[in-house]
Each structure stands twice: as structure tokens, then as C-alpha cells.
Design a protein around this nucleic acid. Structure first.
Lengths: 220, 220
DNA sequence: GTATCGATTAATGTATACATTAATCTGAGA
DNA sequence: TCTCAGATTAATGTATACATTAATCGATAC
């Protein structure tokens, strides 16, 4: 196991604190306090905060502390729009690439895992498998920039899901959507794959936004 | 004029050095040397390099110096694919927004500037106005994340244009494309605006890639 | 009572000294 | 001659001391 630099370590641990909600959205924190909390000097913590800022997770506001960036319903709409466009292109490119069943094995497995999670009513396992489907789909699209951007956007969605995961009925439709997208890719139908995936993301966007608005969740 | 921090200053100056080619693509540089060159200590330079790394302009490679990230034709294809998707959505959203002529004034002006530049055969002025069109288009799309991502991708394109700007015939078609996109937005035709802009970007991608390949420009 | 100017202070910004590390060099032994 | 262990070294990584700055508090003048 190769040793991490303290900066990399600080990035990991701060990300974890944000994603678990230990550092709440909208809250402010001083560099010195965060450094003390992590048992490091300010230098690696400052560097970590710059990285997290470029990932959109915090805002460094001189003399006011770093703020954990809150995400509003409008932000979520923006994020889903980006995901919709870029993942749909990835689905198209994956279908164009002519992958055989072996190459699509991982994608198929994520759908199986989602089915299993749904049967056992394990939402966390479902969310994890759902993430893996989207990650693998984008990987198959063979565009490193799309992979990186989608990863950033997915991070933000994950923060919202902390709150919403248990609020809605079992996401049966998603599993079905994924299966259809996989079929379109396997059969080499780019337009169909793109269109199906677009519909999948647009439906997810509508569901999430209305959930956030209904529950008055204005900053996650 | 509000004073910049040395970190922000280092970001600006290093970006400038990269965009002018003073720091060549693929070249390696030590933190200490860059700091000396800028007349700063290593601390703000290190911080600036982290920012530039998140922008995809450099890669920090411990003990080997920071490398100015080279951009290959494959990279350019990736970049254009991202631009195509996100800008086309922006064009669609701009058309949906129902802007009046006053709100579209800036966009129209950039096209006039492109026409003028073309008449005077001033390629730099043309490129600048072209950038402004795309920036303004995306602004009208009202998605801050798309604005940020497009800005990053456009930065990379700018590096390639350093080399290619004078290699090809006068870009007459672009001005016409822009005018058509503007018309579609002004007349509130989202599908048409998106489709026209997509075609515009796809044509630009094809032109650039073939130019790079013809001239064997494998890392810019 | 209020507004403004200045002192105070608490935070970030910066330089620097030092620790750590991985690449290179060197020399002894096979 | 080749290999490998250890020393050397040149770079980055980290802590810390100090400089700078903007917010706050308070005193004074109106």
C-alpha cells in the first residue's frame, strides 16, 4: 500500500466528512480548525481545500472560513442537465463501439446487483450499484473528459441522495431503464441507446426536483 | 483595482505563459524554477499549480517537475464532443428562454465583429469574437456549470488555435452558422437552435482534426 | 445618539527552514 | 562486466514563523 501525501489524505478525509454530512452544507470552517481536527498543519489542509474548491465541494472565502457549498434544487437541475447530455453521448459512443457481451459483462452485473438490492430492499446497495452502472457506462464511452466531469457531477448528486434515498418509493423503473440501455448498446443501436438514456436521466431529474420541492429541501 | 493574492497572480501569469507557448506543451519545470521566474516563493506557486492542474493545463509529477499537459488530436476530439453537447443544450435553453432583441444584442455584436475581422483578414480579432460568441451563447443558456465546463474546454482549444489559426482558409462558414443559430434563438425555436449549433460544432471538429492530422500535430 | 477614524485582533497569505523521499551514483563482490 | 546495496543528492512535502489584511470594537467629535 503506497503511502499517501498528507494533502491527498486531507482531500480524502474532508470529502468523506462532506459526503457523510459531518461537515454540513452551508456551514463555515476555519483552516486552522480543520487542520487541528485532522491532526495536520495548515499547509496540506490549504492545498486540499484548493482541490475541493475545484471540485465544487467548498468555497474558500477569505476571512470568513471555507463554506461547504450548498446545493439548491436549481443546482440539481443544472447538474442533471449536464449528466443527461454527457452520459447520453457516452451511451451513443458505447453502442457505436461494437462491444461484445464479455466487454459489457460489468455493466450487466451492475443491473443484477440493482435487482438484488431491490428485492432485499437495501437502498444503499441499490444506490451503489446505480453509481457503478453510470460510471461503467461512461467508461465504455471512451472519453476521459466526460468521465471526469460526470464524476464531479455525480459527487454532488450523492450529497442530495443522502437525504432523499429513503423518501421515495422503490426505484423499480430505473432498473428497467438500465436494462433497455444495455440492450441498445449490445445490439449496436447508437440513436436508441442515447435516446433511452436521455429519457432515463430526464425522468430521474423530474423525480428528484419534485421531491426536493415538495419537502422544501432548498440547500443540501 | 483590488489587489490580487500572489497565488492568483501566479495562476494568471502561468496561464499566460502556457497560452502564449512560452511554456511549451510537454515541457517539464521545477517548482523552484517557476517560483524564481515569477519572483515568488514556492508556496503560492505550488498553490497555483494545483489550480492549473484542476483546469487540466499541467500535471504535477512528483520529482519529475510539472509537465505542461500536451493535447493530442484524440484529446481535441474529446474536447469538441463535450463542447458540442453542452453548447447545443445551451442554445436550446437560450431559445426556450424567449429573449428579446435587446437581450440578444451582445450575441449579435459578436457576429458583426467576426464579419469585420474577416473583411480585414484579422484572424486574431476573428478568434476573439468567435470566443465571445460561444461564451455569450452559453451565458444565455443559464447553467453555471455548463459555463464553467465550456470555459475549461475552450481554454484547451485556444492552445491548439495558437498553431492552427493561420493554417486554414478564411472561416467564412462559421459566421454564417452563428447567424443562423442567433436567428433560431431569436425566433424561439429550441430544436432548430440546438440542431444548428450541433452541426456547427461537428463541422469545426472535423476541420480541426483533419488539419491536425494532415500536419502531424500530435501534441500541442 | 451617531458617524467616523483609528487601534486591535483574528484570520488568511507568504516565506522559509526543515523533513522526507525517490532517483541517481558509487563501489564492492560475483 | 554486471548487479545490487548503500550513500548521496536533488527534488517535493510539511511545519512553522511571520506579514498582511479586513473585520470588529471603541473612542472621540459632531
Amino acid at each position: 500500500m503506497t503511502k499517501l501525501s498528507n494533502t491527498a489524505l486531507a482531500v480524502d478525509r474532508l470529502r468523506h466528512l462532506v459526503f457523510t454530512g459531518a461537515l454540513a452544507a452551508g456551514s463555515d470552517h476555519l483552516e486552522g480548525e480543520l487542520a487541528a481536527q485532522l491532526g495536520l498543519s495548515r499547509t496540506p489542509v490549504r492545498e486540499a481545500l484548493l482541490v475541493l474548491e475545484s471540485q465544487g465541494l467548498v468555497e474558500v472565502r477569505p476571512r470568513k472560513g471555507v463554506r461547504i457549498t450548498p446545493v439548491s434544487p436549481k443546482d440539481m437541475a443544472e447538474i442533471y442537465d449536464v449528466l443527461t447530455e454527457l452520459e447520453s453521448l457516452a451511451a451513443r459512443r458505447a453502442a457505436e463501439a461494437g462491444y461484445d457481451d464479455a466487454a459489457l459483462e460489468i455493466l450487466a452485473e451492475t443491473i443484477d446487483a440493482m435487482d438484488r438490492a431491490l428485492r432485499e430492499d437495501d437502498r444503499h446497495a441499490w444506490a451503489k450499484a446505480d453509481d457503478q452502472f453510470h460510471t461503467e457506462l461512461v467508461r465504455l464511452g471512451q472519453n476521459a473528459r466526460i468521465e471526469a466531469i460526470v464524476q464531479l457531477m455525480a459527487d454532488q448528486v450523492r450529497r442530495a441522495r443522502l437525504v432523499t434515498l429513503y423518501m421515495r418509493p422503490a426505484p423499480v423503473q430505473s432498473n428497467d431503464d438500465h436494462r433497455q440501455v444495455l440492450r441498445a448498446i449490445a445490439s449496436g443501436a447508437p440513436d436508441k441507446a442515447a435516446m433511452l438514456h436521455r429519457a432515463h436521466r430526464e425522468a430521474a431529474k423530474a423525480t428528484l426536483i419534485s421531491l426536493l420541492e415538495t419537502h422544501h429541501l432548498n440547500h443540501l
